[in-house]
Design a protein around this nucleic acid. Structure first.
Length: 761
DNA sequence: GGTTAGGGTTAG
């Protein structure tokens, strides 16, 4: 019978057949009757498999086991030698490690030939392959219990790691740091010639299981080093995600108790800020000078020289800073053209240097990858005028400090799923980038005209920036505080400050327009035209005009063969003065409905599903009304569209349409974050509830009006003129609300600008 | 049962 592996100590006890009785090693004597007895102990030494000349060359192995759970007073003969014979010797050698707890049954008791020498125990146990039984369990040592020079199995959460790099010796080296519930951090080095044997770590927070690592002191701290027969298995650290082991090891043992251990570590790590604080940043929130981790997809690559390779990547989010485009001859570029994405500021150009070139060379366009410790820097484009803003470039510098490196990620990796869905919303960028012309996105993306500053007229020192650019409209008359005082205050509090704007966010102002559901408080960005156009195209696939009892329908052929455009009007409304106010339209593209909406007050795009009229996916607007588009909340809309009621409405507006269709209307809102500075301190204040009053602009009107968007841009350019120093900017008189928000059970102090408006002459 | 590394920013 081979060695049986179990997961838990309790399993080990449960394995004891009922007719067996557990015996203490200390009680074993030559006269003990070995039948009906078993022992449970820890393997403290395991010898090699040798061939025994006296017994016809049969294979044998000697191990020493020690009984651990004994009263402290017992010190004599707690250890005993065990000899394994035949196939059991080989099996024991391969599957049991030092530190494992084993249960032995059906052994033979013999006199120990080495007792005089090793003083271990007067007897030894002999295990014959045919009859004897061995049950083994891995034991895992908490990281604060590691002892110098012992070989152990451990579990831990990765708090730092370097991808395998060539050592100065013969192997690749992985170095990592792990921790566990004991809160001790332990460094760990793994050497192996084969890259594929190294642990597959994707990010800090991953869980790792190490078997057969030697604990050793270095510089006064415990370190772990792989030893013979080692293995490493990793898991992602996402609480509640499936416990899927990652390893190259062909045979590894993994059971219920491993699952529990992984889950417990995940739970524990989720509450530890050191582990859960994540260096991963999307392109939309990268700032110059940052070192960060980027998860992305490779679009194209080009070899620059022997020590540098260019990777063009994206993560589907728009960078707030203009991105540097590294020009490469098209025949030197491997992969798809990135022209459309470049224009949308979606393509990050990453220069990969030195030791990382090797890993980058093997990547195929389309691959998902993660950069670790990527550096963002501002750089002048070759053809750039001096007054234009610098562009953001990305460097993966040589070396491995801070875990710098890159690796590809398997497409099914759980933390890639959100990235993939963002990318899928952009699938039509290349074929349809003409649709974006003239849209909100393009209008607001154009950098503002440079503003001429009278800076050469100002004397040294502080410029006179005139009267404050904003006025407070509040009734209360509280004392004006400095920002330093505000920061020391105890919320909730309303106060007055005078400050300048150091920075604001988003810099691309089109991103300050948000959709907000007043019911579930969800806030989202206004979808790109590319995403909306895709919904229209997908909706046109099943182009059987729908046939509803309640509607009068007229159809026409489109320019494309096979596509029919249908208009439906409620029979309830025919004959009423309102009958042309609400039209359902089917089979158009986004461009076509935009053209049509110039002539009709309310156009509801619909699609056909098994002949029944249905609303489109709420990613798209449910209503086109002149220049405006209205969106519904995906979460709160009831979609009671099957039997709509259209009577009793005098004037159809977006609210009446939404109600008739069972859609929860999303409101347009403006959201900007200011970094205020008054020289005593800086603080970040939101402009949210008061935003429309602040700019004297309605968000919904701004959504369809370039003039109003320009007005907001002009105001922002006055508050924070491009290229200006802080001293050149106008003071703002601000009414500030200080309040707390519960975030993960921690009270966070927030600041919001209230009762404050732009001064208009 | 040997050696490597033993975290802490490039400088393009």
């Amino acid at each position: 019978m081979p060695v049986q592996k179990v997961n838990d100590s309790s399993d080990l006890d449960a394995k004891v057949p009922s007719h067996l009785q557990r015996t203490s090693i200390t009680n074993l004597t030559m006269t003990s009757d070995p039948s009906h007895r078993c022992v449970k102990a820890t393997v403290v030494h395991k010898g090699p498999v040798i061939s025994c000349a006296q017994k016809d060359g049969i294979e044998m192995l000697r191990a020493e086991i020690k009984e651990e759970d004994l009263p402290q007073s017992t010190t004599e003969h707690t250890s005993i030698n065990v000899i394994f014979f035949g196939t059991l010797a080989k099996d024991f050698s391969e599957s049991v490690r030092q530190g494992d707890v084993v249960l032995l049954a059906d052994f033979t008791i013999r006199k120990s030939p080495s007792f005089l020498r090793d003083k271990l125990h007067p007897c030894q146990l002999e295990m014959d392959g045919k009859d004897a039984c061995v049950y083994a369990k891995y034991t895992y040592v908490p990281l604060n219990m590691l002892k110098h020079k012992t070989v152990v199995n451990v579990y831990g959460v990765v708090t730092f790691f370097k991808l395998p790099f060539p050592s100065k010796g013969s192997d690749y080296c992985s170095t990592l740091k792990i921790t566990d519930q004991s809160d001790v951090k332990v460094s760990c080095n793994i050497f192996s010639k084969k890259l594929e044997d190294h642990p597959v770590i994707f990010r800090v927070g991953d869980i790792i299981r190490l078997h057969r690592f030697k604990a050793d002191m270095f510089n006064d701290s415990m370190t772990l080093l792989n030893t013979y027969g080692w293995s490493a298995v990793t898991f992602d650290g996402i609480t509640d995600s499936p416990v899927a082991p990652r390893t190259s090891s062909k045979s590894f043992h993994f059971g219920e108790s491993d699952k529990n251990t992984v889950q417990e570590l995940r739970q524990w790590a989720a509450g530890q800020s050191l582990i859960s604080s994540d260096p991963t940043v999307s392109l939309s929130s990268v700032h110059p000078g940052m070192y960060f981790d980027l998860t992305c997809q490779l679009l194209a690559k080009a070899v620059m020289d022997s020590r540098c390779i260019l990777l063009k990547v994206w993560d589907g989010t728009k960078c707030e800073h203009p991105l540097l485009n590294v020009a490469v001859a098209s025949d030197a570029l491997e992969g798809e053209s990135t022209v459309a994405k470049d224009r949308m500021n979606l393509t990050a150009n990453v220069l990969v240097y030195d030791n990382h070139v090797e890993a980058a060379q093997d990547l195929k366009p389309g691959t998902f990858l993660r950069f670790y410790n990527l550096h963002s820097l501002l750089q002048k484009a070759p053809d750039q005028q001096p007054e234009q803003p610098e562009h953001l470039s990305f460097h993966l510098h040589g070396g491995t400090t801070y875990g710098r490196g890159l690796r590809s990620l398997p497409a099914e990796s759980p933390d890639l799923q959100s990235l993939k869905s963002v990318l899928e919303n952009h699938v039509d960028l290349d074929e349809h980038d003409d649709i974006n012309d003239g849209t909100l996105l393009e209008i607001w993306y154009t950098p503002p005209e440079a503003v001429v500053l009278p800076n050469d007229e100002e004397p040294d020192g502080e410029a006179d920036t005139g009267p404050p650019y904003t006025v407070r409209t509040c009734e209360h008359n509280t004392q004006q505080l400095t920002l330093a005082q505000v920061k020391r205050s105890t919320p909730p509090l309303s106060c007055h400050v005078r400050a300048r704007v150091k920075k604001y966010h988003p810099q691309q102002l089109y991103q300050c327009l948000k959709l907000f559901c007043s019911k579930c408080k969800t806030m989202k960005d206004v979808p790109d035209d590319s995403a909306v156009a895709k919904v229209f195209r997908d909706s046109g696939r099943d182009n059987q005009p729908c046939d509803e009892q309640w509607a009068a329908t007229s159809s026409a052929s489109s320019r494309e063969p096979g596509r029919t455009i249908s208009m439906h009007i409620s029979r309830d409304m025919v004959g009423e003065s309102t009958h042309m106010q609400l039209i359902f339209i089917e089979g158009t593209t986004l461009d076509e409905i935009c053209v049509l909406s110039r002539d009709y007050k309310n156009l509801v795009p619909v699609r056909s599903e098994n002949g029944r009229m249905t609303l489109m996916d709420l990613t798209a607007p449910f209503l086109f009304s002149g220049d405006k588009r209205y969106y519904g909340c995906k979460r709160c809309s009831l979609n009671t569209f099957e039997n709509p009621v259209f009577t009793g409405v005098e004037t159809w507006d977006e609210q009446a349409v939404a109600e008739a269709l069972g859609v929860q209307l999303m409101q347009y809102r403006l959201l900007i974050q200011f970094e205020l500075d008054d020289r005593t301190d800086t603080l970040e204040a939101l402009l949210w509830e008061n935003a429309e009053k602040f700019f004297h602009v309605s968000a919904v009107d701004a959504s369809g009006s370039q003039d109003l968007q320009d007005k907001i841009q002009t105001i922002m350019d006055t508050i924070q003129p491009p290229e200006s120093s802080l001293e050149e900017r106008p003071w703002l008189d601000i009414c500030l609300s200080v309040y707390t928000v519960k975030d993960d059970d921690i009270n966070k102090v927030c600041f919001q600008i209230t009762n404050t408006e732009i001064r208009e002459e």
